[in-house]
Design a protein around this nucleic acid. Structure first.
Length: 187
DNA sequence: TCCCGGATGCCCT
DNA sequence: GGGCATCCGGGAT
């Protein structure tokens, strides 16, 4: 198992999103395989937080790659992104769904459900299952206990579609998921 | 100050 | 499986 290093993230956001499929997101004793992700750019991407330039909230997106960008949404959810591109160039990949692998019991307690498919099949759900909140914002994820690792899962087909839940930039096909996987988010 | 969001869970069929 | 109320902080006015 190798932990993804900064050079993996310091590339084109779309490419990183694509290659994150099949990788393992780990936080402490909980872990899951990434089955769905979306790419977000800056200037030319109206769907991105970084579109209107740097602010207190999105400044992490402008910083060095390989850091977490976790923000609060809809009053009670946290969404997990990982920063991409070289420092100074905004970019991030939103992780939308995981297939639970380790610490499932812990996830069930945090999520208050025993249904395995309901643990991580949405961006707000997986942060709750892994115990991620704004406290984990802007953390270097190229080392344990909070990181993404490669376990060599690559036997799958990738589907590319438009992104979910945004109005601006809705035409861009920057959402990727593992075809036929039962743990991806709905719609 | 006000508006609204990169969503979820519940309750109903 | 689908419709709906609802969570509250950020960014624009």
């Amino acid at each position: 198992m190798k932990i993804l290093q900064r050079n993996f993230y310091a590339r084109n956001t779309e490419q990183v999103a694509l290659e994150l499929l099949g990788k393992i997101l780990i936080n402490g004793k909980t872990a899951g395989m990434i089955v769905e992700a979306e790419a977000y750019y800056g200037k030319n991407d109206p769907g991105s937080h970084a579109y209107r330039g740097i602010t207190k909230r999105n400044e992490v997106m402008f910083g060095p790659p390989g850091f977490s960008y976790i923000y609060f949404c809809y009053g009670n959810h946290y969404l997990f992104n990982v920063v991409t591109e070289k420092p100074g160039i905004p970019g991030a990949v939103l992780v939308r769904a995981l297939m639970p692998l380790e610490g499932i019991k812990i996830m069930q307690e945090r999520r208050n459900t025993n249904k395995e498919k309901e643990l991580c099949n949405g961006p707000g759900k997986l942060t709750q299952a892994l115990g991620l909140s704004k406290l984990q914002n802007n953390i270097n994820i190229t080392k344990k206990p909070f990181c993404i690792a490669d376990k060599g899962f690559n036997d799958f087909e990738i589907q590319r579609t438009t992104r979910i839940g945004i109005k601006q930039g809705a035409d861009l096909k920057l959402r990727f998921y593992i075809k036929g996987n039962e743990y991806i988010s709905k719609t």
